[in-house]
Design a protein around this nucleic acid. Structure first.
Lengths: 184, 184
DNA sequence: GTCTATACTCTGATAGAC
DNA sequence: GTCTATCAGAGTATAGAC
């Protein structure tokens, strides 16, 4: 009977993404996902061998979207402006998609495409930072920049800091890094 | 019959800590915890109303230990030396206790003592940064410093970067911040 | 080749007896 | 204060219907 098949990997991923974006990891349960697809829970094990594979696919999606956002934000800008634009688009993504963002630097799971979209994202940021420091392969500075962006997004999400505190800290850190990268 | 009680909140926390440090959140399940305590799973709901409360207590413990480590590392040092010492002890804690560390800036849960040990830790770092910038209540710079430390620890743990990359990035970022804080 | 039915083991949590 | 008994829900494996 099932010609064409009711399920495809893409359809599953699309619905999984919706559930995950609203409710986070807890909302992405196999049974509700099956209900939303009009199917039985065991059905999509043909497409994703386990739940973690689904999460891995979501992480790849998030990485790709973040990459797109940063590319758009930095495109055609002078080095300093691109640096700030990339930073703010990173933060914007974390705010707009908190659950997907939380997937990004999680403890290393399987189902993480090592040389996948993560590599593209890295190279994009590497280029932006390189334009500032004058070293087109400045791994150390890129790591430092990335660490600051990611850490700040988490601090903000944790809610441990007031409203004014984090906001000022972002600008302050960015300017300090920019300044410091130029000097060293 | 049970006089004195077999359980106390401290005993439970101690065993929970052991399980959690070895195996992370998944290893802290109620039944194994009960077995380790020679007790039935339902028994410690008298002491911790739910599993999340136990995790909250572990987070408070982690915060307190990290605070101690940073205090010890920075004690009696000149501003710049204290800055680096605090940074490295933060990183060391993240490496030595990866699971506990992951609890630290998680999404805000209940059972998080808002004005608890977190406040002490914050004030300690605030003092260290203030000694550098000359402003004893430099919230923005402290947030920036903290964001960098936490982000770097996560980048490293994620394993997405080679061995040499992150290492150099830590020093690079710290020096850039130190430099930039002085200038701005 | 695709999906369903069923069942198994695990989880956190609760009610009430002792 | 701890027990027994039980619950609903999770992820997953397998056999077989179509």
């Amino acid at each position: 009977m099932p010609y064409p098949a009711k399920l495809t990997a893409e359809k599953i991923l699309k619905v999984a993404l919706e559930l995950f974006e609203r409710g986070g990891p807890d909302a992405l349960a196999m049974r509700p996902l099956a209900d939303a697809l009009g199917v039985r829970p065991s059905s999509f094990y043909r497409y994703y061998p386990e739940r973690a594979a689904l999460l891995g696919a979501l992480e790849a999606h998030a990485t790709s979207k973040l990459h797109d956002a940063i590319c758009r934000a930095a495109y055609g800008k002078a080095p300093d402006a691109a640096f700030f634009a990339a930073a703010y688009s990173y933060l914007d993504y974390a705010r707009a998609h908190p659950h997907l963002f939380a997937l990004l630097l999680g403890p290393r799971a399987p189902y993480t495409a090592e040389p996948g979209p993560g590599k593209d994202l890295w190279n994009e940021v590497l280029g932006i930072v390189g334009a500032i420091t004058g070293n087109s392969d400045d791994t150390a500075a890129t790591v430092a920049f990335w660490a600051f962006l990611h850490g700040f997004a988490l601090l903000e999400r944790s809610g441990q800091f007031g409203v004014s505190g984090p906001k000022g800290g972002f600008e302050r850190g960015l300017r300090a890094l920019l300044e410091g990268f130029g000097v060293n």
